[in-house]
Design a protein around this nucleic acid. Structure first.
Lengths: 289, 289
DNA sequence: GACTTGTCATCAGTGATACTTATGTGGCGT
DNA sequence: ACGCCACATAAGTATCACTGATGACAAGTC
């Protein structure tokens, strides 16, 4: 079970094609075929069905392991080289959509004034992607938002030793349509709303599966799916009665009133993998200080 | 950064010797030397100081990544082969010391009566070791205990997709020496006791760092360290005033009275990596059913 | 201080093996 | 039925991952 074999296996599984994987990796089709065959004889079980190429059960299981494994391998390399190499004079920040608000603009301005030569990049990514890209060095810093108990850290995919610091924290509010029976309630436990219908807006609000994890319930069934990062659109849909939405209170922005949710907060955390003293450290200081 | 290179690097770091690592791995010393050199040129930084052999900073960092990486690799192999191979007719259960109580004896008896031929092994291990050994297939089942909020799962080191099921849950109690100012209190939040002096008994009770994580405080300073799994000894020390101890209430066993701690429970969870239908599945059914 | 000893680095040689090129084979569409 | 596409297999080669031998260096011994 060599890393190279796993890498080509993952490529084949992703492309659904031996030849496509071969061209991606710079191999011949023959080599890819041999790699997969070697893995299969090593594990004594077929991993792929051919013609058409599809994962077997064992293959699917292996893929579940292989992808994070390769990610962690890349993270290890990035972490060690980060120790050695001089801090780069560029700055790439990844942020989930709802994490953009908390002072990033101001902090970036502070960096630019002190280091006019660096031209920062801000990249909006899915929450799951950010930790991975910070770990493997593609991003210098990450800003992720999420819902958690006030004392708990945000649950993050474990991709190696990353440091996380809270940079902003706000109460949560459920956005109810006008006339909803619960309107005007003072406190609303999230579990009480597990049976309600929700708008599933994984980019603009909290993904519903995260709510289930945070509340320990398995409700939160979606009535409408909203694909996009624009919060205003989500608010409009929620007010029109298409479903409930859970948002940080500041995001409501006076446009609408929400019912506060106790015991849970919306938090933005800064992710980094060991700061040296490049522009990334400056930005981190501006964000946290 | 091949897996073989990482493996020999880890072996060298553990043994503090190239030759010892070579004999362990069945290589010549020359090969080990070349492996380490290859890693160092690949990462463009020395990983080990020689004569005496010691880790550099970069080497220590790499080791932090390499060990879990190799563990996950073994876990992946075990997980896939478990899918394929026939369920073995043996049964190895790992358990942390405080997890032994909850019905394991009875459940084992149930298994033995139905499968008289299997001779089970019970192995008492440190909490951190159990998840790793279940993942890589050394253990068929694991029983770990820990402290968490009633709705939260126990925090486990992430070694791949493992299933965890609660098998026993008990309230927690702080064991105070007689005459302690807080004696007789009804409820006691753990954070209130962060400044007190504690007995650090990582094998017999909860390790203090776990308490810090569970309570979100950084107190819980140790006044005495207790190495051993015998709870009676720990109770005697706590009653003699050497420090506080946090134990599941049943463990006090009438010997002593403790002050209950709300919002946190002691829980024993059963760990397995996908059950087939061997004796392990029988035992799991007996424990959870 | 020379000698011995133990340990890691280096070199040259060789056997394994990881690739390529070329060819075989089976399903699928026309 | 036929060709076409995609994966499997075979044969050949070039690389490189090992071994064994030797060198270099530090520490301990007399």
């Amino acid at each position: 079970m060599d890393t190279h074999l796993l890498r080509t296996f993952v490529a084949v599984a992703r492309h659904g094609s031996f030849t496509a994987a071969a061209t991606e990796l710079g191999y011949t089709q023959s080599a890819v075929s041999q790699h997969v065959a070697a893995l299969e004889t090593d594990l004594r079980t077929p991993l792929l069905r051919r013609r058409p190429v599809a994962l077997t059960d064992a293959g699917a299981r292996l893929l579940e392991h292989a992808e994070p494994l390769l990610l962690r391998l890349a993270a290890a390399r990035a972490d060690v080289t980060r120790l050695v190499a001089a801090p780069a004079e560029h700055l790439v920040v990844g942020a989930s959509a709802l994490a953009l608000g908390g002072g990033l603009a101001g902090a970036l301005a502070a960096v630019r004034s002190r280091r006019p030569l660096v031209s920062p990049t801000v990249r909006v990514l899915e929450r799951t992607e950010i930790a991975a890209r910070v770990a493997d060095g593609t991003l210098d810093l990450g800003l992720v938002d999420g819902v958690a108990a006030p004392t708990d850290p945000l649950p993050l995919p474990d991709v190696g030793p990353l440091s996380a610091v809270a940079v902003a924290q706000a109460p949560l509010a459920v956005l109810l349509p006008p006339g909803h029976p619960l309107e005007g309630r003072r406190g609303l436990r999230l579990a009480d709303l597990a049976d309600a219908r929700w708008i599933d807006a994984p980019e603009a609000a909290m993904p519903l599966d995260r709510l289930r994890a945070a509340s320990g319930s398995d409700g939160f069934r979606p009535s409408l799916r909203y694909e996009g990062t624009d919060v205003r659109g989500l608010i409009a849909l929620a007010l029109a009665g298409h479903g409930l939405a859970l948002l940080p209170e500041p995001a409501l922005d006076g446009v609408a009133a929400g019912v506060p949710v106790p015991r849970l907060v919306h938090r933005v955390e800064l992710l980094h993998g060991g700061l040296t003293d490049g522009p990334a450290a400056l930005l981190a200081a501006a964000l946290t200080g």
